[in-house]
Design a protein around this nucleic acid. Structure first.
Length: 296
DNA sequence: CACTTGACCTGTCCGC
DNA sequence: TGCGGACAGGTCAAGT
């Protein structure tokens, strides 16, 4: 599921919904996969503490606690973080009336956090690739992932010059593989890779070395544009992504190529979007727009 | 070191 | 209708 815009949307929702709440209990529904890691830490630093901030770095959600511990959460492909306040549920279904999720917990629920006001936060993850860790806040920057992950594309401090310099380290591979590489820049996944490459008129299997700097700069601008638009639309619900209130995002209504195989290209009504495979991922292209062809 | 591929899981969809 | 295989928004580890 979630790429940068979806994770950002979840974070903004959680910030509004759970900051200030006190954790009454937290439990793994099934046998623990990654949470709780250390029971004594859970007892001493999670239960009874309150939430002071919700942050995002790359595709990772950081929930900071007054105890100076942080819940570190990666949703991977199918993770959801859904907040439900049963008291405000007038419909008796256990969730808002326009929610996309059914009554929780369900068979995909991995972790349940209960707050002192009896509202709940559910971590659901159908494919179980996602994880939740509890770490001292000061240790978060030392995590292997945090050490390796590249800059945030939407930060003003990240310039085209930085982007070009970093992506040139991957000159030998395809441009799609390069922008999916989280050590080059943070947050691009399969949807926004295809959308931004269409916007920059670059074929996804073009070797990085064959792309001039000016076109790489255009690509960065497209990445920023599609991500900013998607955040405005609450992210992309391609399969099962929902925000912190269980609601769908609507970026897919604005997608130009992603998941639109067989439909006309927005710029060439006579040309149909094709689905190919690049960097091991399903990839959507307009072969007229995206002309840079490439040795195979 | 740079690059590609398979593995991690469950669910769904598509063709026979 | 049932079954097998391919595939799904992400990252690692292991292979070349």
């Amino acid at each position: 599921m979630p790429e940068l815009p979806e994770v950002e949307t979840v974070c903004r929702g959680l910030r509004r919904l759970i900051v200030g709440k006190v954790i009454k209990s937290a439990k793994d529904i099934e046998s623990p996969k990654s949470f709780p890691n250390v029971p004594s830490e859970v007892d001493n630093f999670l239960v009874g503490s309150s939430i002071i901030a919700v942050r995002r770095r790359a595709k990772v959600i950081l929930i900071d606690l007054l105890s100076q511990y942080t819940l570190v959460i990666h949703l991977k492909m199918t993770g959801q973080l859904v907040f439900i306040d049963d008291k405000s549920d007038r419909f008796g279904a256990g969730h808002p009336s326009d929610s996309l999720v059914g009554k929780l917990p369900d068979r995909s629920t991995r972790v349940v956090v209960e707050f002192s006001d009896e509202s709940h936060l559910y971590f659901n993850d159908q494919r179980r690739f996602g994880w939740v860790k509890l770490l001292p806040t000061s240790e978060v920057p030392n995590m292997k992932f945090m050490q390796k992950v590249g800059p945030e594309p939407l930060e003003d401090s990240f310039t085209a010059k930085d982007f070009i310099q970093r992506i040139r380290r991957r000159n030998g591979t395809t441009i799609k593989a390069a922008i999916l590489d989280q050590t080059v820049l943070a947050g691009v996944g399969n949807i926004y890779a295809d959308e931004s490459l269409w916007g920059a008129k670059i074929h996804p299997s073009t070797r990085v070395r064959d792309i001039p700097d000016a076109q790489l700069e255009k690509l960065l601008n497209e990445i920023k544009d599609v991500m900013n638009l998607s955040i405005k639309k609450g992210g992309s619900t391609n399969r099962n992504y929902v925000d912190a209130e269980g609601k769908k995002g609507s970026y897919m209504d604005f997608a130009r190529v992603f998941h639109r195989e067989g439909l006309p290209c927005p710029e060439h009504p006579d040309v149909l979007i094709e689905k190919i495979r690049v960097a091991g991922r399903g990839t959507h292209v307009c072969l007229v727009c995206q002309t840079h062809l490439v040795e195979t």
